[in-house]
């Protein structure tokens, strides 16, 4: 089996103190139905806990759901910690109540696409598949 044929491993994470997990649970179910291997962290995770889980589970993608307004703190922190752990190959993406301008600012800090309210879940699935195809393409092919 070539690298791009295997299942995509995704950690769905809920960082911070917010308990609104409707979105996280819906997206976790949708990812599973799309054929991804999904690990869900549960609530109230610190960036350190999320990064430890991502490294331990050897995931391709960390998808964070943030509705609390703390996205400008949480996304960069998780990105930094992933990079510090040598996990800069992991895609950090996510969704929540995140204004357009903040999405752009976060993308400039190495965060992947972020999805706002009302986005069809299929957009997120497609994005991750395309990223995976491109990023995990064996060298020289």
């Amino acid at each position: 089996m070539s690298e791009t044929d295997r299942k995509i491993r995704v950690l769905v994470a809920k960082p911070g103190l917010d308990g609104h997990d409707r979105g996280a649970k819906v997206i976790a179910s949708v990812f599973r139905d799309a054929g991804f291997e999904v690990i869900y962290t549960g609530l109230h995770q610190t960036p350190e806990m999320i990064v430890a889980a991502a490294v331990q589970e050897d995931v391709d993608v960390v998808a964070m759901s943030v509705l609390s307004g703390a996205h400008m703190t949480l996304f960069p922190r998780v990105r930094e910690l992933l990079d510090a752990e040598g996990a800069d190959h992991i895609l950090l993406t996510g969704g929540g109540i995140i204004p357009e301008e903040d999405m752009k600012a976060l993308q400039n800090k190495g965060v992947g696409r972020l999805f706002g309210p009302g986005t069809p879940t299929s957009d997120a699935v497609r994005y991750i598949r395309e990223w995976f195809q491109e990023d995990r393409q064996p060298e020289g092919v």
Binding site: G16, L17, D18, H44, T46, S68, G69, A70, M72, T73, L74, R77
Partner: peptide, 22 residues
């Protein structure tokens, strides 16, 4: 805010980034 809802003070490490936000 979320720290208060969860019983954390504004200066607790778990509150970082969430003080007065929601």
């Amino acid at each position: 805010d979320f720290p208060t809802l969860m019983g954390y003070d504004s200066d607790h490490p778990r509150s970082l980034g969430e003080v007065g936000v929601c």
